[in-house]
Simulated scan of single mutants.
Amino acid sequence: MSKSVVDIQQAFKQLRLAETAEGLPELLRQAEQVSWTYLEFLEELTTLELRRREEKSIEKRLAWARFPYHKPLHMFQLEEQTAITERQMKQLQEFQWLEQSYNLILLGPPGAGKTLLAVGLGIEAIQGGFQVYFITMGELIQLLKTEEFTHRSQIQLKRLRASDLIIIDDVMYMALDQREATLFFQLVHQLYEQSSLILTSNRSPEEWTELVDNQGMMTAILDRLLHRVEVIHMNNESHRLKHQQKIFNE
């Protein structure tokens, strides 16, 4: 006894092939229109399931990344700055540095495009199959200080520690007390050679030690951060000022 399309869709759902179940009616119509062979039909069926699963996976990882905005890497105007060459950008996009647990430190004044570049690389990393987590330094310190007794902090830090790439924005924009520095050191130690970091800051690493009471602790942090690292100095004109939107016409 032949089954209806609805029955077959239900069977696919029971097999946890939800995307195939949803797309089955349209695929059947296409198969009739162009006279697919059985093999061609099966190929289209499996391709649909895999493609939609990957799309949903990317959507989920983008949501988990918590980017402050969604601006792909092509929005970073490479030709408007001198910090990175086109060849170097291509190297970054190949993500061998991420597979080898290298870090990136993006330095420069506010508006230089540090966060824009970091987010763009993060989005491309997700599309390449990596798990990414974005957080500001202030938010990170707050999560670390409340991890022991706040369920939300525990969940967020669990996702952070499981990520292949962690982007920490505005690193060392303010001083850390002894406890905060200790918590930050413990996190960096946990991530050392397990995950890659992209750090953005308007202060050079040499200045970071001035913002921590315990300079020995900061030295230990820097020792791990700078072991495998590429430092990019983005001292070009403010990207936000250059592309500002005005009320009045010139």
Rank of each mutant, 00 (worst) to 15 (best):
I58M: 02
V6S: 05
K3R: 11
Q100A: 09
H151R: 15
Q245Y: 13
W36N: 02
K60Q: 13
K13S: 09
R16I: 03
A181C: 07
A11T: 10
L121G: 01
T115G: 10
G111M: 11
G216N: 13
I123S: 02
L226D: 01
I105K: 00
L45Y: 01
W208P: 04
F67T: 11
L116V: 12
R224F: 08
F185I: 03
I247Q: 13
G216V: 09
K246Q: 10
L106A: 07
I247L: 15
M174R: 09
V231S: 04
K71F: 06
Q10M: 07
R179V: 12
I168G: 01
Q91A: 14
P109S: 14
R224N: 07
F248R: 14
E206V: 09
I247S: 11
P110W: 10
Y102N: 03
A181V: 04
G122L: 06
T200Q: 04
A63H: 13
Q244R: 14
Q9D: 00
V5M: 05
S35K: 10
Q190T: 13
T182E: 10
F248N: 12
D213A: 01
I135S: 13
I58K: 07
N202F: 07
A31G: 04
R240Y: 12
E147F: 09
T46V: 14
W36V: 04
E32V: 05
L92T: 00
L165Y: 01
T47P: 00
L62F: 12
D213Y: 06
Q88L: 11
Q77P: 01
E49P: 02
R87E: 10
A175Y: 03
H70Q: 12
L24D: 01
R228C: 03
P25E: 03
M174E: 14
F41N: 03
I126E: 06
M172H: 02
N249M: 05
L98P: 03
Q30P: 00
A11H: 07
P72R: 10
G128Q: 14
H74I: 04
L116K: 09
T115S: 15
Q81K: 05
I232M: 10
L27P: 00
S238G: 11
R228W: 04
F67G: 09
L106Q: 05
T182K: 08
P110R: 10
R228H: 15
N249G: 06
L165E: 04
S204D: 12
S35P: 00
E59C: 08
E193V: 05
S153A: 15
E32T: 05
I105A: 03
N214R: 14
Q30W: 04
L42D: 04
